[in-house]
Design a protein around this nucleic acid. Sequence first.
RNA 1: GCCCUGAUGGCGGAAUUGGUAGACGCGCUGGACUCAAAAUCCAGUGGCCUUUAAAGCCGUGCGGGUUCGAUUCCCGCUUGGGGCACCA
Length: 911
Amino acid sequence: MDYDFKSIERKWQAWWAENKTFKVVEDPSKPKFYVLDMFPYPSGAGLHVGHPLGYIASDIFSRYKRLRGFNVLHPMGYDAFGLPAEQYAIQTGQHPEVTTDKNIARYREQMDRIGFSYDWDREVRTCDPAYYKWTQWAFLQMFDSWYDPDRDQARPISELVERFGTTGYADVTPERWAAASDREKSDILMNYRIAYQGETSVNWCEGLGTVLANDEVKDGLSVRGGFPVEQKKMTQWQLRVSAYAGRLLDSLEKLEWTDSLKEMQRNWIGRSEGTEMVFNTVCDGRELPVTIFTTRADTIYGVTFMVLAPESELVEQLTAADRKAEVAEYLQYVKKKTERERIAETKTVTGVFAGSYSINPVTGEKVPVWISEYVLAGYGTGAIMAVPAHDSRDYVFAKTFGLPIVPVIEGADVSEQSVDAKEGVMCNSGFLNGMSVKEAIEAAKDYVEAHGLGHRKTNYRLRDAIFSRQRYWGEPFPICYRDGIPTPLPLSALPLRLPEIDSFKPSPDGQPPLSRARDWTYGGCPLEKSTMPGFAGSSAYYLRYMDPHNDSALVSREADAYWRNVDLYIGGTEHATGHLIYSRFWNKFLYDRGFVCEDEPFRKLINQGMIQGRSNFVYRIVGTNTFVSLGLKDKYDTTEIHVDINLVRGDRLDLEGFRRWRPEFADAEFILEDGEYICGWAVEKMSKSMFNVVNPDDICDTYGADTLRLYEMFLGPLEQSKPWDTKGIDGVARFLKKFWRLYTTRDGFAVTDEKATADELKVLHKLIAKEQEDIENFSFNTTVSAFMIAVGDLASMDCRKREILEPLCVLLSPFAPHISEELWHLMGHDDSVTAARFPEYVAAYTVEDSVTYPVQFNGKMRFTVDLPKAASPAEVEEAVRALEQTARWVGDGRIVKVVVVPGRIINIVVK
RNA sequence: GCCCUGAUGGCGGAAUUGGUAGACGCGCUGGACUCAAAAUCCAGUGGCCUUUAAAGCCGUGCGGGUUCGAUUCCCGCUUGGGGCACCA
């Protein structure tokens, strides 16, 4: 009876689908567990073996948790709005929906072959109107909310309106509010809404014809497509993510995420505690207050000039009449630069003198005001006090423009560079003299506040998220413009569906594609023409899985109260500063407004590593069509050429296949070693252009899905990047065959009802202990090893007993579900192996006997005893006494150290 | 420049709390079965010295340190990967 993985896998995949084996419903009698994969963007290229790594891990964990009696929510869906489908549509005219559907079908087919235990009844697609209705709904909720700093949470905007009308709030008095026109009221409220429209400097990408969020830009190029990005002032929809910066930072503490990922988010949020201080500034005889932000209030005596960001509103007012021409010229120069040029030229220092002077509020000293692009308008107040002696950027600027440098820390040598370190003792600093820098920072802050010169302030690097995209393939905004005033659509108008348009390009006059739609209006008012960005649909999808068919709420209170939040989230690190920030923000907002019961979406997060490709090379002798084998290539002048890994087996090239591969190689000649052509290799990203892509379908055809699953786990630690090498897969394929042969002989099924021996039980119990420990630690590779050892042991004992093999089958089922399901049914069960329960087997688990054995090494003795885990203190003491006696006798010497860890190991070291 | 991470045989990787480094798998070598091959099974496999064996020595990126004992802890480097980058 052979292991026919093909028919077994086909059979059980169909059976699971037919019986809806993995359908899950809320069940208060069982503890819940929510395991989530980051849903994929369905690209045209399909899946390669790297993609399912995380899905396999989460599937194993889900199946394991079910065995342990949890009610497991394990859904899957598609992040289906996005740029690639639209770019493709622009080129081919094909509707993005058509290509997206096609790609999704292919993804589904590929995933189904791997045997995942998803509840497909809960599938979501972000481009489905029934889904994006709730994305639009969330946007309207944000539009209808403001962030109340006193309560530190989002509140209905109506509360703010009420305050404006009664007590007044901030700079809006009841009188002003009452006198304001509708237009003015709308403008005022825009300054407070969580989702608001405002002019801001944006990342404009000409190549894509749209603006991009900060996390969609890298090194001055768009992440999608790699087009240059420039800064541009535009009116855009934005989300007030910055209001949540403090909470996003603080609640990182309680999350079980990796330190590196938390650190990435901390850096991205970028908290910095400092002081805002007012410098009165004189320009052409007029006096104006200029507020600056600094973390180094202690260096106030070292201020020798001020710098404004070129985009700062103060620039115009603080430019003296006789400097207008130079300043205008400089502003022009800055404006022309792209983001990329700015990055490339960080070393070159530019700036211009504004002609005005600030008065140091502490010393009364007058210092010149400059304008330079090294000060950013978007951070702090867009103005700084420059202390060249103790800030490297100010230092370079001062050196370039010949400004004075005044050190205020004892012994600081500023002849070559600034001294930025926050250490040393203050000097030249009046009341701060003699203090350490740390003391001085606090003393200076106190001084500033006591004298009314400013106040303590915490700033964040995190900016509001730009929420408009000038594209077609995204969620339309449920906003129309009534007399030009942005007005939300009523909830009954949702979903606002994407209109049909004739072309997906921007309109000839540079308007977004939606301007091509006929009658894009609501109640006679024009609708918003931009659409939402990719992260809109992915920010709350984990909530929708809880209640995917609900038409009256994003998620019902009952479903939300049961599933709460994601217990385990598996996905790549690339979303650290995008999706994972937006999702947390989005969730906190919904939490504030009482729509969900947890304030963090993802409790535990595991980042699976990338699976890299293993590329092969051939070496062509320059100017010829002759290829030389790896070992001989150094004797010639060669170029390295990627060769399709399907033409290579064990680094040996299939010569005929190579000649057939491409016309230009048809008459290739080879210089062989030992009669073979050996290829070079390297580990690289898995990609088509390197001819190293391995398709999971091929692996399923050749080895089966169970082998693929086991092998992906066996490759190495989940979180680590590692190369794929199909060569090694034979090991796990052999393991599964060996496993199969435990239950079967040539004649058929061969499991007996004999009583198991102590040795056989020990093998099983060791495996149970190991699997339990390893799976909870996500150490799946060592679990697979443990299975190999156990199966090897049982095979050598020729153990065919149900008492051992039935639990073994259950243990393996999370990893290799198809073969386990087959054997489970062969053993006489009618239900799925999924319905089996661990505790029954774990209860039978007993601890192995204690053993004592001395070991000699390096002229010293070590004595070790393994105690039962449940050993009592008295038993431990007894064991120590016995060991000490043995040690004295054998060692004939002094006991150096006794290490006792109850329940573990006792070590006695003797000299 | 700053932050995070990693570095162990020919390869992927094990190693609890500081306690026999190299589990498990691949590859390789030899053997069994076979006309032969595939498949399967058995044995060996870090390096050096040695005819062989035994024994010994060296070995976890490099250099120090702590310790009876270091892949593990501390200090200083080298290097791969990732993130941030004028954030005052």
